[in-house]
Design a protein around this nucleic acid. Structure first.
Lengths: 230, 230
DNA sequence: TTGCGGTCAATTGTTGACAATCTACACATT
DNA sequence: AATGTGTAGATTGTCAACAATTGACCGCAA
């Protein structure tokens, strides 16, 4: 993996732990580190040609953002998320998206409406063309923009964190695509409520949309309520 | 400060960084470290008789939980929260409490209703007796229990984190008491909605209650939108 | 007085080494 | 065969030292 070697050199000016935290996070999110796997500090240090100090710092950060768990004298482990925990995260995220909708409906600009509208159009096109990958990317951007436009930084950060946590759950069972495809009709309803500057409706539509996503997602997996090994 | 020396010895079995993170967090929450202040790693290490490694690990964790900020080559600083950021946090918290109300109304037990009822009664008594401190403690417990009873761990963790973040803002201006005294009537309305097992009403009452708290709180301060020095 | 360089102490960034702990495996015992 | 025990290797926890950077102080020139 030469990708990190570059960022390492580039970001050596901006502290190893920060760059490392991003890199380890990336490996977790991309499934290169599997759920439950231990982060071997020595191995990672040797691989990257650095010492263990910065690695431990980065891991501490990832523990706080709930991507890693730490067991004393045993090390850092990629967190394992149970179906129950994933469901809880979905509920919280739905609630936050509701807030996003309520907030944004009261302050959205015409330009932002146009951009969101264009995204919905392109999702329609992708849907018609059967281009699932394009649809997925557009879908993510649609939701991200809604959160961004609220200009509530705390909300932004939380949604980002929750999304990462869910990615963690996704890697538990391997399949990712399939069934995740959301009807674009819900997006149209959300956009209409935002364009009407109706906070209650925009919030309700977004919350409903996210909860529908939760049901779609959880129903495609084995909801075995397995807990951590100890 | 002999208090920490004990915990240090006690928790030496369970890793310095964890104990340190709690201790530094305590110092921030209690205002012993002031907003904007730098954490001097050497000084702290010497004071506690340990080395800088664990301190840096603890600080990384606190950065992720938003109590500290890090500037490369300059160190860790206690975060400064602007009025805008505090308002954002309040909005998010209100939204989450709404979720707590909706969730709890669908699963609250008679025993839990009784406990919450007792808390409201005792708040009434404290209100009549003018015992602001007792009222404050009961008030916190009332809200904590509502969140706890939902059994949504993610929600629990987030509310806890947001509360700490707000404590950070509280220390910006010194006064804390006064004006914070909430009418107990709102609590009664919340309890009634929960006891009626009405999710929509319980959620709405809680959200309204938190937003009212936001207004009460922000109106008592100078809303100077000062940002970090750079 | 004001602004500009340069030196130096203080502080953070990173490393390598050592101590403490855990896991696995082989061996002895019942 | 099953169980306990002890040793060895691997791994984490902590430390002390060194390198790099920063900010402040001080003198000097315009």
């Amino acid at each position: 993996m030469p990708g990190f070697e570059d960022t390492l050199r580039l970001l050596r000016s901006s502290s190893l732990p920060n760059a490392l935290q991003d890199e380890i996070e990336r490996r977790i999110l991309f499934g290169e580190y599997r759920a439950g796997e231990r982060i071997n500090e020595n191995a990672l240090a040797q691989e990257l040609g650095i010492s263990r100090g910065p690695i431990r710092e980065a891991c501490r950060g990832l523990v706080e953002s709930r991507l890693l768990a730490v067991i004393v004298n045993r090390g850092f482990f990629v967190r394992e998320i149970t179906a129950k925990e994933a469901a809880d995260v979905y509920d919280v995220r739905a609630s936050l998206m509701r807030l996003a909708g309520e907030t944004l409906a009261g302050r959205i600009t015409d330009g932002q409406i146009a951009i969101l509208g264009s995204l919905v159009e392109r999702m329609d096109a992708a849907e018609r063309g059967g281009d699932h990958d394009a649809y997925y990317v557009l879908n993510v951007e649609f939701h991200d923009r809604i959160v961004d436009y609220t200009e509530n930084d705390r909300l932004r950060a939380m949604c980002e964190g929750l999304a990462k946590e869910l990615a963690l759950y996704r890697h538990r069972s391997l399949i990712d695509g399939g069934g995740v495809h959301v009807s674009n009709r819900e997006h149209r309803r959300i956009l209409a409520a935002l364009a009407a500057r109706d906070p209650a409706r925009a919030g309700a539509e977004l919350e409903r949309h996210m909860l529908a996503g939760k049901e779609r997602f959880l129903s495609t997996r084995d909801n075995t309520g397995d807990g951590p090994p100890a």
